[in-house]
Write a protein that binds this DNA or RNA. Structure first.
Length: 566
RNA sequence: CGGAGUGUAGCUCAGCUGGUAGAGUGCAGCGUUCGGGACGCUGAGGCCGUUGGUUCGAAUCCAAUCACUCCGACCA
């Protein structure tokens, strides 16, 4: 491609609102252009990168027996009602009516559509297992798009779905998908951190997220310092180092005006870990009370998962008071649970003893509160948020928190969709069973952005060979007729050899061309000037190096072959 | 949905003590240049987000509304 023909406009300056390197360089290099919040047009350069990423993913999906398909973007409401997600998902699912006044949705993911397809096509164990995948637009009406392509509303995702006769078979395939994902990310130059993740309202038990560690990441990851444990903070577990002592007698103490853990700890001169905090959430009219050791924070995801609800909200004082709790001085002592009051007790409270807790009376706390003796509940579990400085379960290894960008995920769905949507097969004995499903997603645009986050300098992206929009950037330095004709010939020769060449044939000053070359990030830059052709040579410069070398024109093809290994 | 901010030329922004609009850059043309975003001249390009109000007069003041950005909430 000749730059003179390329549909592109590079920018000297990115909009002030662009902060992430990927956002800045994709805009400045003319890869993408924002149309509206979270909606981006892709220009030819960006499209080439996306296509190369897609081809890598396609190869790896085909290698694990994937078959490419295409599912609709617009679905009738009924399909989503079948799975129960029409009501379970909030405004993120864009709903609208078609001309016949029929309720429709824009697909934010395709479990329903693919389950519908497979249940009609597959009916026997002989047809299983199978995996189908697609590259398809998703629309999610995100409350807040941000960071260029990192978080958008409309995006192409590679989503794959596998169907199995048994959980064991899914387990085996899940491992294959896991390896395929590692290959994909390695091929685009990313070394992902792979963490256990929340399964959310998708149900299922096991899921992993592939993360690019980056300060701009939206997810918090908890990683053991020896790398032995890695999980999304939402679900990460840790050692609470609880110690049980002999139970002492209750003792009411005045704590006027001291409502926070910190204040009470200072007043009574006890460690925050000897306090018991009481956090309130509400779901409609019912109250959820969470009792937790004072030095720990609540993980709302763990609570949502335990209660199996899509959302909880901080409770209003009015509701808290209605159940007999006194905000600031609250505990479960003397308050039994009932059908509108769930009392969740973190195991840090169960396994500790003699806590200072609220007296449910303004200005008073109680010392030596113990689970079982002084209050009770059958809702015991792990509801605490793992944080930097905590220790791995059962070991002394420290956990640290890092930020990450989610670039892919794999999920064991199990039979959630196949049961609700009756995707069943007949086994050897003629008995009907729900198919066991897995799903595997990668956001293609986000991956492109992640690669830039991962690999750039102050001038622009440094694309890996595998997905650079063009492999070779050719430019004439100066408009001398001999220089131009040398470049023209070189351009033709390289193309004939099958290289993707971007030829900057514009009548521009060298500085302009160099800046653009950096923004377009081709791995190899070949420059031809009057000086070089005097020696029948050209400049050979790699994007990831700062200096260039002069090589003979005869050696260009050889050197390219060597560099690209083809 | 809460909090903050911004809407003026394709892009980045100035103008905002009220008097109908500017720079840089980009674009077109001419000339001088030609190794890391050169310089000079000429030119095209704006209903100052939208609507209403105050005023003789509004980009400028007030109100509403829309859009976009950031922080938070949210994020199968």
């Amino acid at each position: 491609m000749k730059v003179s023909q390329l549909v592109v406009q590079t920018l000297r300056e990115a909009p002030a609102s662009a902060e992430l390197p990927s956002h800045i360089f994709l805009l400045r290099g003319g890869y993408i252009k924002q149309l509206a919040s979270g909606l981006y047009s892709v220009l030819p350069l960006g499209k080439r990168v996306l296509q190369k990423i897609e081809n890598i993913i396609r190869e790896e999906m085909n290698r694990i027996s994937g078959q490419e398909i295409d599912l609709p973007l617009v679905h009738p409401k009924e399909l989503w009602e079948e799975s129960g997600r029409y009501d379970a998902i909030g405004d993120e699912l864009l709903r609208f009516k078609d001309r016949t006044n029929h309720d429709m949705v824009l697909a934010m993911t395709h479990e329903e559509a693919v389950t519908d397809l497979i249940r009609h096509v597959v009916s026997s164990y002989k047809q299983l297992p199978c995996m189908v995948y697609q590259f398809k637009l998703k629309f999610r009406d995100e409350p807040r798009a941000r960071g260029g392509l990192i978080r958008v509303r409309e995006f192409v995702m590679k989503d794959a779905y596998s169907f199995h006769t048994t959980h064991e078979d899914l387990d085996k395939y899940y491992q294959l998908a896991y390896e395929a994902y590692k290959n994909i990310f390695q091929r685009v130059g990313i070394a992902p951190v792979i963490v256990q993740s929340d399964t959310g309202i998708m149900g299922g038990k096991i899921a992993h997220e592939f993360m690019l560690e980056a300060p701009s990441g939206e997810d918090n990851l908890i990683i053991a310092e020896d790398g032995g444990y890695r999980a999304n903070q939402e679900i990460a577990v840790f050692d609470k180092e609880s110690v049980k002592e002999d139970e002492k007698a209750l003792e009411k103490v005045p704590t006027p005006g001291k409502k926070s853990i910190k204040d009470v700890s200072e007043l009574l001169k006890v460690e925050t870990s000897q306090l018991m905090k009481c956090v309130f959430y509400q779901m409609n009219d019912s109250l959820v009370t969470v009792l937790m050791r004072g030095d720990l924070n609540v993980s709302e995801i763990k609570i949502k998962n335990y209660l199996k609800v899509p959302a909880i909200f901080p409770a209003e004082d009015k509701l808290i008071l209605k159940f007999g709790f006194v905000p600031g001085y609250a505990s479960a002592v003397g308050i039994p649970s009932n059908k509108n009051l769930r009392i969740l007790v973190d195991d840090s409270v169960v396994n500790g003893s003699n806590f200072v807790a609220g007296a449910n009376e303004k200005g008073f706390h109680i010392k030596n509160v113990n689970f079982n003796r002084d209050f009770n509940s059958s809702d015991i579990g792990d509801f605490a948020l793992a944080e930097s400085g905590h220790k791995c379960k059962g070991s002394e290894v420290l956990l640290k928190a890092v930020k990450g960008i989610e670039i892919g995920n794999i999920f064991k769905l199990g039979t959630k969709f196949s049961t609700s949507m009756k995707a069943e097969f007949l086994d050897e004995k003629g008995k009907s069973n729900p198919m066991v499903m897995g799903c595997y997603g990668i956001g293609v645009g986000r991956l492109m952005a992640a690669v830039v986050e991962n690999s750039h300098d102050k001038f622009g992206p440094i694309w890996p060979k595998s997905i650079a929009p063009y492999q070779v950037h050719l430019l004439n330095i100066g408009a001398d007729p001999d220089v131009v004709s040398t470049c023209d010939h070189l351009y033709a020769d390289l193309q004939k050899e099958g290289y993707d060449v971007l030829y900057d044939d514009r009548d521009e000053r060298p500085g302009v061309k160099f800046k653009d070359a950096d923004l377009w990030g081709s791995p190899v830059r070949i420059g031809v000037s009057k000086k070089t052709i005097a020696e029948k040579a050209c400049e050979w410069k790699l994007r990831n190096e700062t200096s260039f070398e002069k090589i003979s024109l005869d050696r260009v093809l050889l050197k390219l072959k060597d560099y690209f290994g083809i």
